[in-house]
Each structure stands twice: as C-alpha cells, then as structure tokens.
C-alpha cells in the first residue's frame, strides 16, 4: 500500500528553500566582484607596464 504521508514528507524535504537559492548566488556575486576589482587593481596595471616595456 502506498504511504501517502511518507511521500508527502519526502517531497517536502526535496523543496529548495529561498535561502538555498540565494546563498550560492550571493557568494558567487561577491567572488566575481572581488576577482574583477583585483583584476583592475593588480593585473591590469602590470599587463600595461609589461606591454610598455
């Protein structure tokens, strides 16, 4: 016999909460932002000076 209550609980577990969606996105945006700023502050001036050399 099918245990409907069990299936209901299982499907509840499978639901993705808002936090589960938001946290990876926020972390990724932060990491990308840092990488972009780092590239602008550190890598770009060095590449320019290399080209000039």
């Amino acid at each position: 016999m099918v245990d409907h209550k069990k299936i209901q609980d299982w499907s509840k577990d499978m639901e993705i909460s808002v936090l589960d969606r938001v946290v990876p996105i926020v972390l990724s945006i932060w990491a990308i932002l840092v990488i972009v700023v780092y590239a602008a502050a550190f890598i770009y001036p060095r590449i320019i000076s290399l080209i000039k050399r």
Binding site: D20, V23, P24, L27, S28, A31
Partner: peptide
Amino acid sequence: EKYGLVFL
C-alpha cells in the same frame, strides 16, 4: 554540503 556551490 548545504548548498551545493557548483559554480563557486
């Protein structure tokens, strides 16, 4: 373990 973080 909690959020997956494949992209990260």
